[in-house]
Design a binder for these strands. Structure first.
Lengths: 116, 116
DNA sequence: CCGTATCCTGCACGATACTG
DNA sequence: CAGTATCGTGCAGGATACGG
């Protein structure tokens, strides 16, 4: 065979996974979505809910997430102006990934402590 | 309340997700596991099945994956010596994550083309 | 309250050549 | 076949201070 069967099957899975990783990769993107999804809608709230994130990094990540339609930045005029972040219908489809990662992360800890 | 409810809930999810990301993060780890899981057990097979990966990077990633008990490196004596890589029971538990990422990646493409 | 502005650092990743 | 050896680079991420 010109191309191995396993290679073809592998590519069919790897390609979309890479598309997902390209958008979700990094230390902060999913934590930020989790935080906003949990109800933290203000910048300071989000920052306080994610230990270790700096304002510069948070601002950059928020912009990228907005560009990818994973969050909405909503400005409400008034005194003072209110700025809030919300998840989108699109980012709501991320929860299967997040829960899968959460479950696996919990299990991974057990696995490491058992064997090492 | 001293700590917002949303912060507490957020942390409960973020922490295990970070544990998972710490191990799985990067451009190549999941693709390599997918490739080995698809039946590519030889070094060259894996390399050929993942477009763009260089031998140096592949070697480094394989070592890290082995350390995290996500793959086994099996040496079979003989002429010539045979070296093969296999998934582990632990890495088999990654498939929910992989399939979730695959589904989301496919859907994300559609989403992007629709809106932009 | 919601961010910018600077400055800095490491390492993830890449190109290319070579080896037992 | 299964990797090392060198060399190189960009950018994710961090520390700190400041601004409308």
């Amino acid at each position: 065979m010109a191309v191995k069967k396993a290679h073809r099957y592998c590519l069919d899975t790897v390609k979309p996974v890479r598309d997902a990783l390209d958008v979700l990769q990094g230390k902060w993107k999913l934590p930020i979505i989790i935080s906003i999804g949990a109800g933290n809608d203000r910048y300071t709230d989000i920052q306080d809910s994610i230990p270790g994130i700096t304002p510069k990094v948070l601002a950059k990540e928020l912009k990228e997430l907005e560009q990818h339609q994973l969050i909405n930045r909503v400005i409400t005029e008034g005194y003072p102006v209110k700025i809030a972040y919300y998840t989108t219908a699109h980012s709501d489809t991320l929860w299967p990934i997040i829960f899968a990662l959460k479950d696996w992360g919990l299990n991974h800890r057990k696995q490491i402590f058992r064997k090492v």
